[in-house]
């Protein structure tokens, strides 16, 4: 018997850790992983609410979020590889111009 609030609180804490990672890290790969962590925290809240309302809609939304995250990772990592090939460096501070 776990109150559903606890899951929501855990989700908020995980989301904040992800946001903190985006703010303090310079490595774009770790920033990307932090974004995945934030998506995951959102998913946890969705499943908790789905359990609370005894409805499948939340779970189906999580399924879509997982699919979108997979697509996002494929394109994002391709972009990072491409930036690395052009600049020989992936420090986020160097990425200040759109032109290669």
């Amino acid at each position: 018997m776990v109150p559903v609030d606890y899951y929501i609180i855990l989700s908020a804490i995980l989301f904040t850790i992800g946001a903190l990672g985006v703010l303090i890290r310079r490595n774009p790969l770790i920033i990307f992983m932090s974004i995945e962590l934030m998506l995951n925290a959102g998913n946890l809240a969705f499943v908790a609410f789905s359990n609370m309302h005894k409805s499948f809609n939340g779970q189906i939304f999580v399924f879509f979020v997982i699919a979108v995250a997979a697509a996002e990772v494929a394109v994002g990592l391709a972009l990072i590889v491409e930036i690395f090939k052009t600049k020989k460096n992936i420090n986020i501070d160097e990425m200040n111009s759109l032109k290669g």
Binding site: P3, V4, Y7, I8, I9, A48, F49, N51, M52
Partner: peptide, 11 residues
Amino acid sequence: LISRAKPDVVV
């Protein structure tokens, strides 16, 4: 979340 949502449900 705690003050507004207040989901009074246990899993």
